[in-house]
Amino acid sequence: MFLEVIAKNLEDVIEINKSNASRIELCDKLEFGGYTPDYNLIKEACELSKIPVNVIVRHSHIDFYSSEEEKLEILKDIEFIKTTKANGIVVGVLNKDNTIDLEFLKKVIAMKGDLKITFHKAFDFVNDFEKEYEKLANLKIDNVLTSGGENISKGFEILKVLTSKNLYTKVLIGGGVTLDNIDIVKSISDQVHIGTAARIDNTFETAIDLEKIEKIFRG
């Protein structure tokens, strides 16, 4: 099983490194779905962690249709992240018709260097999951983070379809993963992402709970 766990600060990074987690997703402002963290935090977290760290690159909580200004901020962030020990970036931008903004994504790919790339949960808002997933695979995007729509309990069938295609882009199931549904999730994909499920009281206001991460592993 490959397990990615969200961290919001250095304390989280330290705790997650004590677990069986495979990778960390580093985020700020999780109440808005995750923003690019402070540059100092990115640098320190990536130096400290023995587990690979992927950094979210995002600035707008309104929607996933980024302005030209935000796109420039995203590219600036990527240039900085390339100077750190980060493993990868987590990014996702849509067009107004809920298709993936391929033009901008290609700019990101051209700039990212050796960084791995995950297309984040903007994917949950596309109109045609199969078609957009194939676009990501054709661009050799490493992962797509998705719950098969805005509600994971309604997304399992979509997730089954996507994983059955066995394309280049790995389906990383995340967003609503809990101890109650982990067995179903793991029956679809061994690539799993958790956020609040790794916390003491299932909110981002509390600390990492190593026992819960272990339970996710055991199912």
Rank of each mutant, 00 (worst) to 15 (best):
S67L: 01
V91L: 10
N98I: 04
F119R: 06
N181W: 05
G148N: 02
L139M: 14
L75K: 14
I14F: 14
L26E: 08
I117S: 12
D201H: 10
G34T: 03
I141N: 02
I81S: 06
K107G: 04
I117M: 15
F80T: 09
E73R: 14
L162N: 02
D190G: 07
D114R: 13
N151M: 12
N181H: 02
K121F: 13
F217A: 09
E31R: 09
E132I: 08
I16R: 10
K186I: 03
K140G: 00
E47G: 03
V161C: 03
I200M: 13
V13P: 01
D201P: 01
K82V: 06
V161L: 12
S66E: 14
N87A: 13
N40F: 13
A197K: 05
E205D: 15
V108T: 10
F129Q: 01
T163H: 08
E31D: 15
I184M: 08
E70G: 06
L10G: 08
T196A: 02
A198I: 04
H120R: 03
R199C: 07
R58G: 01
K212W: 07
K121N: 03
I6C: 08
S67N: 14
D77V: 10
I14P: 00
V93Q: 01
I16G: 04
T169M: 07
T206E: 10
I56G: 08
F125S: 11
H193C: 00
A45K: 04
K135N: 11
D38F: 11
I117G: 10
I89Y: 02
V177E: 08
D97F: 01
V90Q: 05
F129G: 03
V5R: 02
F2Y: 15
